[in-house]
Write a protein that binds this DNA or RNA. Structure first.
Lengths: 161, 161
DNA sequence: CCGATAATGTTCAACTATGAACAATAAAGT
DNA sequence: ACTTTATTGTTCATAGTTGAACATTATCGG
Protein backbone atom coordinates (compact mmCIF):
# COMPACT_ATOMS: atom_id res chain seq x y z
CA UNK A 1 0.00 0.00 0.00
CA UNK A 2 2.67 2.48 0.98
CA UNK A 3 5.58 2.30 -1.36
CA UNK A 4 7.60 4.03 1.24
CA UNK A 5 10.77 4.38 -0.76
CA UNK A 6 9.66 6.15 -3.94
CA UNK A 7 8.85 9.68 -2.86
CA UNK A 8 6.34 11.54 -5.04
CA UNK A 9 8.80 14.18 -6.18
CA UNK A 10 10.77 11.50 -7.96
CA UNK A 11 7.63 10.69 -9.85
CA UNK A 12 7.63 12.61 -13.15
CA UNK A 13 3.87 12.86 -13.48
CA UNK A 14 3.52 14.07 -9.92
CA UNK A 15 6.16 16.76 -10.38
CA UNK A 16 4.53 17.69 -13.63
CA UNK A 17 1.12 18.15 -12.12
CA UNK A 18 2.37 20.13 -9.16
CA UNK A 19 3.96 22.52 -11.62
CA UNK A 20 0.71 22.78 -13.54
CA UNK A 21 -1.23 23.57 -10.38
CA UNK A 22 1.22 26.21 -9.27
CA UNK A 23 1.26 27.84 -12.69
CA UNK A 24 -2.52 27.97 -12.67
CA UNK A 25 -2.63 29.57 -9.27
CA UNK A 26 -0.14 32.23 -10.28
CA UNK A 27 -1.85 32.87 -13.59
CA UNK A 28 -5.09 33.44 -11.73
CA UNK A 29 -3.45 35.96 -9.45
CA UNK A 30 -1.68 37.69 -12.29
CA UNK A 31 -4.87 37.84 -14.33
CA UNK A 32 -6.67 39.34 -11.36
CA UNK A 33 -4.11 42.14 -11.19
CA UNK A 34 -4.19 42.72 -14.93
CA UNK A 35 -7.98 42.94 -14.85
CA UNK A 36 -8.23 45.19 -11.81
CA UNK A 37 -8.38 48.45 -13.78
CA UNK A 38 -11.50 47.19 -15.56
CA UNK A 39 -13.03 46.44 -12.15
CA UNK A 40 -13.34 42.80 -13.16
CA UNK A 41 -12.20 39.66 -11.43
CA UNK A 42 -11.45 36.31 -13.05
CA UNK A 43 -14.88 34.87 -12.24
CA UNK A 44 -16.55 37.81 -13.97
CA UNK A 45 -14.35 37.35 -17.01
CA UNK A 46 -15.18 33.66 -17.17
CA UNK A 47 -18.83 34.56 -17.24
CA UNK A 48 -18.42 37.24 -19.87
CA UNK A 49 -16.32 35.06 -22.15
CA UNK A 50 -18.85 32.28 -22.03
CA UNK A 51 -21.70 34.65 -22.76
CA UNK A 52 -19.69 36.13 -25.60
CA UNK A 53 -19.39 32.70 -27.09
CA UNK A 54 -22.70 31.12 -26.13
CA UNK A 55 -25.25 33.90 -26.14
CA UNK A 56 -28.66 33.08 -24.72
CA UNK A 57 -27.39 30.37 -22.41
CA UNK A 58 -29.22 29.76 -19.12
CA UNK A 59 -27.78 30.28 -15.66
CA UNK A 60 -27.65 26.57 -15.01
CA UNK A 61 -25.82 25.83 -18.25
CA UNK A 62 -23.40 28.61 -17.50
CA UNK A 63 -22.71 27.24 -14.02
CA UNK A 64 -22.02 23.82 -15.49
CA UNK A 65 -19.58 25.23 -18.00
CA UNK A 66 -17.76 27.14 -15.29
CA UNK A 67 -17.73 24.16 -12.91
CA UNK A 68 -19.29 26.13 -10.09
CA UNK A 69 -22.54 25.89 -8.19
CA UNK A 70 -25.60 27.66 -9.51
CA UNK A 71 -25.93 29.63 -6.29
CA UNK A 72 -22.72 31.30 -7.36
CA UNK A 73 -24.40 32.49 -10.54
CA UNK A 74 -27.34 33.72 -8.52
CA UNK A 75 -24.93 35.93 -6.63
CA UNK A 76 -22.81 37.26 -9.47
CA UNK A 77 -25.23 37.66 -12.33
CA UNK A 78 -27.69 40.10 -10.75
CA UNK A 79 -24.80 42.29 -9.74
CA UNK A 80 -23.39 42.22 -13.25
CA UNK A 81 -26.83 43.01 -14.58
CA UNK A 82 -27.12 46.05 -12.34
CA UNK A 83 -23.76 47.12 -13.64
CA UNK A 84 -25.08 46.99 -17.18
CA UNK A 85 -22.78 44.28 -18.47
CA UNK A 86 -25.39 41.62 -19.06
CA UNK A 87 -29.12 41.23 -19.43
CA UNK A 88 -31.37 38.44 -18.16
CA UNK A 89 -34.56 37.69 -20.04
CA UNK A 90 -37.01 34.99 -19.07
CA UNK A 91 -37.53 32.20 -21.55
CA UNK A 92 -41.17 32.24 -22.52
CA UNK A 93 -41.27 28.54 -23.33
CA UNK A 94 -39.94 27.60 -19.90
CA UNK A 95 -40.77 30.15 -17.25
CA UNK A 96 -38.11 28.78 -14.90
CA UNK A 97 -35.05 29.66 -16.92
CA UNK A 98 -33.40 33.02 -17.36
CA UNK A 99 -31.48 33.44 -20.59
CA UNK A 100 -28.35 35.55 -20.52
CA UNK A 101 -27.16 38.15 -23.01
CA UNK A 102 -24.34 40.64 -23.16
CA UNK A 103 -25.16 44.30 -23.46
CA UNK A 104 -23.17 46.45 -25.87
CA UNK A 105 -21.18 47.75 -22.92
CA UNK A 106 -20.63 44.19 -21.79
CA UNK A 107 -19.41 43.16 -25.20
CA UNK A 108 -16.92 46.00 -25.32
CA UNK A 109 -15.54 45.28 -21.89
CA UNK A 110 -15.36 41.60 -22.68
CA UNK A 111 -13.26 42.27 -25.73
CA UNK A 112 -10.91 44.48 -23.77
CA UNK A 113 -10.58 41.88 -21.06
CA UNK A 114 -10.07 39.03 -23.51
CA UNK A 115 -7.31 41.01 -25.15
CA UNK A 116 -5.58 41.30 -21.80
CA UNK A 117 -6.07 37.65 -20.98
CA UNK A 118 -4.88 36.48 -24.35
CA UNK A 119 -1.81 38.66 -24.12
CA UNK A 120 -0.95 37.20 -20.73
CA UNK A 121 -1.41 33.63 -21.88
CA UNK A 122 0.55 34.31 -25.03
CA UNK A 123 3.39 35.82 -23.13
CA UNK A 124 3.56 32.91 -20.72
CA UNK A 125 3.40 30.22 -23.38
CA UNK A 126 5.50 32.13 -25.89
CA UNK A 127 8.28 29.57 -25.96
CA UNK A 128 5.98 26.59 -26.29
CA UNK A 129 5.59 25.60 -29.95
CA UNK A 130 2.05 25.55 -31.23
CA UNK A 131 2.00 21.82 -31.71
CA UNK A 132 3.16 21.30 -28.15
CA UNK A 133 0.37 23.55 -26.91
CA UNK A 134 -2.09 21.49 -28.85
CA UNK A 135 -0.69 18.33 -27.32
CA UNK A 136 -1.11 19.80 -23.88
CA UNK A 137 -4.66 20.79 -24.73
CA UNK A 138 -5.44 17.25 -25.80
CA UNK A 139 -4.20 15.81 -22.53
CA UNK A 140 -6.01 18.37 -20.44
CA UNK A 141 -9.26 17.98 -22.28
CA UNK A 142 -9.04 14.26 -21.81
CA UNK A 143 -8.61 14.80 -18.08
CA UNK A 144 -11.61 17.11 -18.06
CA UNK A 145 -13.63 14.49 -19.85
CA UNK A 146 -12.63 11.73 -17.47
CA UNK A 147 -13.30 13.74 -14.34
CA UNK A 148 -16.63 15.09 -15.48
CA UNK A 149 -17.71 11.58 -16.27
CA UNK A 150 -16.60 10.32 -12.86
CA UNK A 151 -18.45 13.16 -11.24
CA UNK A 152 -21.72 11.80 -12.50
CA UNK A 153 -20.96 8.21 -11.52
CA UNK A 154 -20.33 7.71 -7.81
CA UNK A 155 -17.85 4.87 -8.38
CA UNK A 156 -14.37 5.94 -7.41
CA UNK A 157 -11.58 3.81 -8.77
CA UNK A 158 -8.64 5.32 -6.91
CA UNK A 159 -6.98 4.01 -3.79
CA UNK A 160 -10.30 4.46 -2.08
CA UNK A 161 -10.49 1.46 0.18
CA UNK B 1 -5.56 47.18 -30.07
CA UNK B 2 -8.60 44.99 -30.60
CA UNK B 3 -7.98 42.47 -33.31
CA UNK B 4 -11.68 42.04 -33.56
CA UNK B 5 -11.71 39.24 -36.06
CA UNK B 6 -9.53 36.57 -34.48
CA UNK B 7 -11.58 35.20 -31.61
CA UNK B 8 -9.59 33.75 -28.71
CA UNK B 9 -10.90 30.21 -29.17
CA UNK B 10 -9.18 30.06 -32.52
CA UNK B 11 -5.98 30.84 -30.70
CA UNK B 12 -4.20 27.55 -29.88
CA UNK B 13 -2.43 28.84 -26.80
CA UNK B 14 -5.65 30.32 -25.44
CA UNK B 15 -7.58 27.10 -25.94
CA UNK B 16 -4.71 25.23 -24.43
CA UNK B 17 -4.64 27.31 -21.31
CA UNK B 18 -8.37 27.21 -20.80
CA UNK B 19 -8.14 23.45 -20.85
CA UNK B 20 -5.33 23.54 -18.31
CA UNK B 21 -7.36 25.75 -15.98
CA UNK B 22 -10.45 23.59 -16.23
CA UNK B 23 -8.46 20.42 -15.62
CA UNK B 24 -6.90 22.00 -12.54
CA UNK B 25 -10.25 23.01 -11.17
CA UNK B 26 -11.68 19.53 -11.62
CA UNK B 27 -8.60 17.87 -10.21
CA UNK B 28 -8.92 20.02 -7.13
CA UNK B 29 -12.53 19.00 -6.68
CA UNK B 30 -11.78 15.35 -7.31
CA UNK B 31 -8.87 15.40 -4.91
CA UNK B 32 -11.10 16.97 -2.29
CA UNK B 33 -13.55 14.10 -2.61
CA UNK B 34 -10.80 11.47 -2.56
CA UNK B 35 -9.35 13.03 0.58
CA UNK B 36 -12.62 13.45 2.42
CA UNK B 37 -12.43 10.18 4.31
CA UNK B 38 -9.13 11.30 5.86
CA UNK B 39 -10.84 14.50 6.94
CA UNK B 40 -8.32 16.47 4.90
CA UNK B 41 -8.84 19.13 2.27
CA UNK B 42 -6.40 20.06 -0.49
CA UNK B 43 -4.93 23.00 1.44
CA UNK B 44 -4.14 20.72 4.35
CA UNK B 45 -2.48 18.24 2.06
CA UNK B 46 -0.40 20.96 0.47
CA UNK B 47 0.84 21.91 3.90
CA UNK B 48 1.57 18.35 4.93
CA UNK B 49 3.42 17.53 1.72
CA UNK B 50 5.62 20.56 2.07
CA UNK B 51 6.39 19.77 5.68
CA UNK B 52 7.13 16.21 4.71
CA UNK B 53 9.66 17.47 2.24
CA UNK B 54 10.99 20.55 4.02
CA UNK B 55 10.90 19.79 7.69
CA UNK B 56 11.58 22.68 10.06
CA UNK B 57 10.39 25.33 7.64
CA UNK B 58 8.84 28.52 9.04
CA UNK B 59 5.24 29.63 8.55
CA UNK B 60 6.29 32.44 6.29
CA UNK B 61 8.39 30.20 4.06
CA UNK B 62 5.55 27.72 3.89
CA UNK B 63 3.11 30.44 2.87
CA UNK B 64 5.47 31.53 0.12
CA UNK B 65 5.80 28.02 -1.23
CA UNK B 66 2.04 27.59 -1.24
CA UNK B 67 1.45 30.99 -2.84
CA UNK B 68 -0.96 32.05 -0.13
CA UNK B 69 -0.99 34.78 2.49
CA UNK B 70 0.60 34.14 5.86
CA UNK B 71 -2.68 34.90 7.58
CA UNK B 72 -3.92 31.75 5.95
CA UNK B 73 -1.20 29.77 7.71
CA UNK B 74 -2.07 31.44 10.96
CA UNK B 75 -5.57 30.07 10.58
CA UNK B 76 -4.82 26.53 9.42
CA UNK B 77 -1.68 25.58 11.30
CA UNK B 78 -2.96 25.97 14.87
CA UNK B 79 -5.94 23.87 14.00
CA UNK B 80 -3.72 21.17 12.51
CA UNK B 81 -1.54 21.35 15.56
CA UNK B 82 -4.53 20.80 17.84
CA UNK B 83 -5.40 17.82 15.69
CA UNK B 84 -1.97 16.37 16.34
CA UNK B 85 -0.74 16.39 12.76
CA UNK B 86 2.00 18.95 13.17
CA UNK B 87 4.04 20.61 15.84
CA UNK B 88 5.22 24.22 16.06
CA UNK B 89 8.39 24.99 17.94
CA UNK B 90 9.84 28.43 18.34
CA UNK B 91 13.23 29.03 16.82
CA UNK B 92 15.58 30.00 19.61
CA UNK B 93 17.85 32.03 17.37
CA UNK B 94 14.97 34.15 16.11
CA UNK B 95 12.15 34.41 18.56
CA UNK B 96 9.73 35.59 15.89
CA UNK B 97 9.61 32.44 13.80
CA UNK B 98 7.80 29.21 14.48
CA UNK B 99 9.36 26.15 12.89
CA UNK B 100 7.04 23.42 11.70
CA UNK B 101 7.39 19.68 12.10
CA UNK B 102 5.22 16.68 11.34
CA UNK B 103 4.22 14.40 14.17
CA UNK B 104 4.35 10.66 13.64
CA UNK B 105 0.60 10.67 13.16
CA UNK B 106 1.00 13.51 10.68
CA UNK B 107 3.65 11.63 8.77
CA UNK B 108 1.44 8.56 8.49
CA UNK B 109 -1.56 10.51 7.30
CA UNK B 110 0.60 12.42 4.86
CA UNK B 111 1.82 9.22 3.30
CA UNK B 112 -1.70 7.90 2.96
CA UNK B 113 -2.85 11.13 1.40
CA UNK B 114 0.10 11.33 -0.96
CA UNK B 115 -0.62 7.81 -2.12
CA UNK B 116 -4.14 8.88 -2.99
CA UNK B 117 -3.00 12.03 -4.72
CA UNK B 118 -0.32 10.27 -6.70
CA UNK B 119 -2.78 7.61 -7.78
CA UNK B 120 -5.20 10.25 -9.01
CA UNK B 121 -2.54 12.16 -10.92
CA UNK B 122 -1.19 8.96 -12.36
CA UNK B 123 -4.57 7.84 -13.53
CA UNK B 124 -5.27 11.18 -15.17
CA UNK B 125 -1.94 11.42 -16.92
CA UNK B 126 -1.69 7.74 -17.69
CA UNK B 127 -1.71 8.20 -21.44
CA UNK B 128 0.83 11.00 -21.45
CA UNK B 129 4.31 9.62 -22.08
CA UNK B 130 6.88 10.42 -19.43
CA UNK B 131 8.89 12.65 -21.70
CA UNK B 132 5.81 14.64 -22.58
CA UNK B 133 5.05 15.11 -18.89
CA UNK B 134 8.55 16.39 -18.37
CA UNK B 135 8.12 18.80 -21.24
CA UNK B 136 4.92 20.09 -19.68
CA UNK B 137 6.69 20.45 -16.35
CA UNK B 138 9.42 22.51 -17.97
CA UNK B 139 6.92 24.92 -19.50
CA UNK B 140 4.92 25.25 -16.32
CA UNK B 141 7.96 25.80 -14.15
CA UNK B 142 9.09 28.49 -16.53
CA UNK B 143 5.72 30.19 -16.17
CA UNK B 144 5.97 29.95 -12.40
CA UNK B 145 9.42 31.52 -12.55
CA UNK B 146 8.29 34.36 -14.78
CA UNK B 147 5.23 35.18 -12.73
CA UNK B 148 6.97 35.04 -9.39
CA UNK B 149 9.59 37.37 -10.73
CA UNK B 150 6.97 39.80 -12.03
CA UNK B 151 5.23 39.67 -8.68
CA UNK B 152 8.24 41.21 -7.03
CA UNK B 153 8.74 43.89 -9.68
CA UNK B 154 5.77 46.22 -10.08
CA UNK B 155 6.38 46.69 -13.82
CA UNK B 156 3.64 45.06 -15.83
CA UNK B 157 4.41 44.49 -19.46
CA UNK B 158 1.01 43.35 -20.71
CA UNK B 159 -1.63 45.45 -22.40
CA UNK B 160 -1.63 47.54 -19.28
CA UNK B 161 -1.92 51.05 -20.63
C1' DC C 1 23.96 52.24 22.30
C1' DC C 2 19.68 53.88 20.07
C1' DG C 3 16.30 55.05 16.70
C1' DA C 4 14.52 53.64 12.23
C1' DT C 5 13.28 50.01 9.24
C1' DA C 6 12.02 45.38 8.26
C1' DA C 7 10.24 40.73 9.16
C1' DT C 8 7.26 37.23 11.60
C1' DG C 9 3.04 35.71 13.25
C1' DT C 10 -1.81 36.98 14.86
C1' DT C 11 -6.32 39.07 14.64
C1' DC C 12 -10.15 40.96 12.37
C1' DA C 13 -13.40 42.65 8.93
C1' DA C 14 -14.57 41.98 4.27
C1' DC C 15 -15.36 39.17 0.40
C1' DT C 16 -16.13 34.72 -2.15
C1' DA C 17 -17.91 30.20 -2.84
C1' DT C 18 -20.63 26.40 -1.40
C1' DG C 19 -24.43 23.21 -0.34
C1' DA C 20 -28.91 22.66 1.73
C1' DA C 21 -33.54 24.22 1.92
C1' DC C 22 -37.05 26.48 -0.56
C1' DA C 23 -40.68 28.35 -4.19
C1' DA C 24 -42.05 28.18 -8.84
C1' DT C 25 -42.50 25.67 -12.91
C1' DA C 26 -42.19 21.63 -16.00
C1' DA C 27 -42.37 16.76 -17.17
C1' DA C 28 -43.65 12.13 -16.32
C1' DG C 29 -46.54 8.41 -14.46
C1' DT C 30 -50.94 6.83 -13.28
C1' DA D 1 -56.87 15.32 -14.62
C1' DC D 2 -53.71 14.74 -10.89
C1' DT D 3 -50.01 13.20 -8.12
C1' DT D 4 -45.12 12.59 -8.19
C1' DT D 5 -40.66 13.65 -9.60
C1' DA D 6 -37.24 16.75 -11.63
C1' DT D 7 -35.33 21.23 -12.81
C1' DT D 8 -34.40 26.20 -12.39
C1' DG D 9 -33.21 30.00 -9.76
C1' DT D 10 -32.96 32.23 -5.03
C1' DT D 11 -31.80 32.63 -0.15
C1' DC D 12 -29.19 31.75 3.75
C1' DA D 13 -25.87 29.90 7.04
C1' DT D 14 -21.32 28.26 6.78
C1' DA D 15 -16.55 27.90 5.71
C1' DG D 16 -12.26 29.52 3.34
C1' DT D 17 -9.16 33.29 1.86
C1' DT D 18 -7.40 37.76 1.86
C1' DG D 19 -5.22 42.23 3.10
C1' DA D 20 -4.69 45.68 6.57
C1' DA D 21 -3.54 46.77 11.20
C1' DC D 22 -1.02 45.33 15.08
C1' DA D 23 2.58 43.48 18.64
C1' DT D 24 6.88 41.38 18.98
C1' DT D 25 11.48 40.73 17.70
C1' DA D 26 15.69 41.50 14.37
C1' DT D 27 18.53 44.19 11.69
C1' DC D 28 20.66 48.19 10.06
C1' DG D 29 22.72 53.12 10.39
C1' DG D 30 24.15 56.49 12.82
Amino acid sequence: MNKNQSLPWDHPRFRSWIAVARACQLMQQSLARALAHLDLKPPHLDILVNLFRFEGISQQELARKLLVGRSNMSMLLPQMEKRGLIERRGDRQDKRVLRLYLTEEGRRITQDAMTIQTALIDRMLSDAPIEECEAIAVHMERIVGLLMQEEREPQEATGDQ
